[in-house]
């Protein structure tokens, strides 16, 4: 069995009296698209912040590519290949759209010319070529999210955390993104997709992780997970189970 790309063991995080994450165990193999779902307050955002280093876990370990991430800053993690997109990305005001994307390449050590070329390729792939020289201030949220996505792809990541990327995208944009993710996953990039849109989750995920009240309550192939009684209970309440389907 190949070494997992990401392994969380016993991760706990509390904020004052609120226990956000309780004993989270999660293992993600080096080749997959993993959906992460759960009702509001389940701890998904906290988990993302723990993975990216915004918060430190109270206990437990986070191992990425065999490396313990304790004390590793967000920026360092990004350079190691653990990246995330933002639900509401801020436009980078003083740079044009393509320049904002180039930054990812510059961090990787590319020259400006190479970074620009690579950024152009990513923009073309995501259908953003027309907006390349425009100021992000003039672009709608959907385009900003795609730019954010392109930027983190420029880092040649190993694991991409997509935080509600799909909401706010038009139908056409959604199709392009889903195809892109499929293609990149085939090349070996792992995606952890946090989403509310079930069609997206079902279309993309090879495996599904469900969280509720701070813990992982199910992890497996989607068809199996959605029938798990704990998952149904978490989303619909225990009354739902009383009704025979």
């Amino acid at each position: 069995m190949p070494e997992p790309l990401l392994a969380l063991r016993g991760v706990c995080k509390s904020f004052g009296a609120v226990r956000s994450l309780v004993d989270v165990d999660l293992v993600i193999a080096p080749s997959s698209v993993v959906g992460l779902i759960g009702p509001n307050g389940a701890g998904k955002s906290t988990l993302i912040n723990i993975l990216t280093g915004v918060y430190q876990p109270d206990s437990g370990s986070v191992i990425f590519g065999g490396k313990d991430l304790v004390g590793v800053s967000t920026a360092q993690r990004a350079r190691l290949g653990l990246v995330r997109t933002f639900q509401r990305p801020s436009p980078i005001v003083d740079l044009s759209a393509i320049e904002g994307v180039m930054v990812g390449g510059l961090v990787r050590g590319l020259s400006r010319t190479d970074a620009r070329a690579e950024a152009q390729a990513h923009l073309a792939r995501l259908g953003l070529r027309a907006e390349a020289e425009r100021s992000p201030r003039t672009l709608p949220t959907g385009r900003l999210k795609l730019l954010d996505f392109a930027r983190v792809l420029m880092l040649r990541p190993k694991l991409v955390l997509l935080d509600e990327l799909m909401s706010g995208l038009s139908g056409g944009e959604l199709e392009i993104v889903l195809d892109t993710i499929d293609a990149l996953a085939a090349e070996g990039i792992v995606f952890l997709v946090v989403e509310h849109l079930m069609e997206v989750i079902q279309r993309l995920s090879r495996s599904l992780v469900v969280m509720d009240a701070g813990s992982v309550i199910a992890h497996g192939p989607p068809e199996q997970v959605v029938r798990d009684r704990r998952v149904v209970e978490a989303y619909l309440g225990s009354d739902a189970l009383a009704t025979p389907c």
Binding site: M102, G104, R151
Partner: peptide, 26 residues
Amino acid sequence: RRSRLGFYVAVIKSSEAVARAAGIRI
């Protein structure tokens, strides 16, 4: 302003969170 650092500064100015997520050593 055309250099690598110039780009990083522009990102930091708009959002430190985005800068960190892009791997910039703020």
